[in-house]
Design a protein around this nucleic acid. Structure first.
Length: 266
DNA sequence: TACAATGTTTTAAG
DNA sequence: CCTTAAAACATTGT
């Protein structure tokens, strides 16, 4: 489910636990979300540690604890963070449960595509500091964006938007939205976009990301009725701009929705 | 029933 | 070594 803005929304769901101690840790140790993670270290470190701060970058989250604990979380397709009461009894898919005096911090993920990482150290882990420049960073420039498009020039532009190395935080719905707002066909080769198209794509990427952060990232409000998003999963969805019946196909390995009238190959 | 789901990783091929 | 495409992962809901 979660892309850039949804991840930001879920990150904040643990805010009520900031500056408070973790009393105990409950873990579904055999679940796939802990693949490659030192669960014993996680348990030992977090028990008795205080949650100091949290950050999100693209689809990645990092929670910083005292005792040098760094907890990385990725929500995969169906992961969620939430806060429950102190007396909360975990249910089936609550794989990581951090108990505090006044509340319980929960990470649940039915489909198990999410991931829990844990490291102990004085500085943030390398996987975090090495993340690519975010959409809103000064390094995310038109030139950098164009280099990335060129580098993946044979692939459909839809597939390139999904690559986290170049567009961190962009996922399936945001990629479709960006292409629709840019009036670009998702199947067009990234390397064949002309200068104007590349500029529009760059601008709309930042526009969609910024609006989504403001609307969804804040409190999970609904996106505007003027956006493709509101119609993309409807049975006979109509383009909110020209009223043409929307098309669907698998592009870049994901179901893609576009307007056959507005979005032309460039 | 069979298929698809707001994602990433692995594998294979060019 | 790099890019691209497809399969795999696990569960739920339509």
């Amino acid at each position: 489910m979660p892309e850039l803005a949804e991840v930001e929304f879920y990150r904040k769901q643990w805010d009520s636990g900031l500056r408070q101690k973790i009393l105990s840790v409950d873990i579904h140790a055999d679940k796939r979300v802990f693949r490659g993670t030192d669960i014993d270290l996680l348990r030992r470190t977090l028990a008795g540690a205080t949650l100091l701060q949290s950050r999100a970058h693209g689809k990645q989250m990092l929670f910083c604890f005292s005792k040098g604990g760094w907890l990385g979380l990725h929500l995969g397709m169906t992961g969620k963070l939430r806060t429950e009461s102190a007396a909360f009894v975990p249910v089936k898919h609550d794989h990581l449960v951090l108990r505090q005096k006044k509340q319980t911090l929960v990470f649940g993920d039915p489909r198990l595509f999410g991931r829990v990482l844990f490291e102990r150290g004085t500085a943030a882990p390398a996987w975090w500091t090495n993340l690519p420049p975010g959409i809103f960073s000064a390094q995310f420039t038109l030139a950098a964006c164009e280099r990335f498009l060129k580098r993946h020039g044979k692939a459909p532009v839809k597939a390139v938007l999904l690559l986290q190395a170049g567009f961190p935080g962009i996922g399936n719905w945001m990629a479709d939205e960006i292409l629709w707002q840019s009036r670009l066909h998702p199947r067009g080769a990234a390397g064949k976009l002309d200068g104007t198209a590349r500029k529009i794509l760059f601008r709309e990427t930042r526009f969609v990301a910024k609006q989504a952060m403001k609307i969804v990232g804040e409190d999970f409000s609904d996106l505007p009725k003027s956006w493709l998003f509101r119609y993309r999963w409807k049975k006979k969805g109509i383009c909110p701009r020209c009223a043409a019946v929307l098309e669907h196909a698998s592009i870049g390995g994901r179901t893609t929705c576009w307007c056959p009238e507005c979005q032309v190959e460039n």
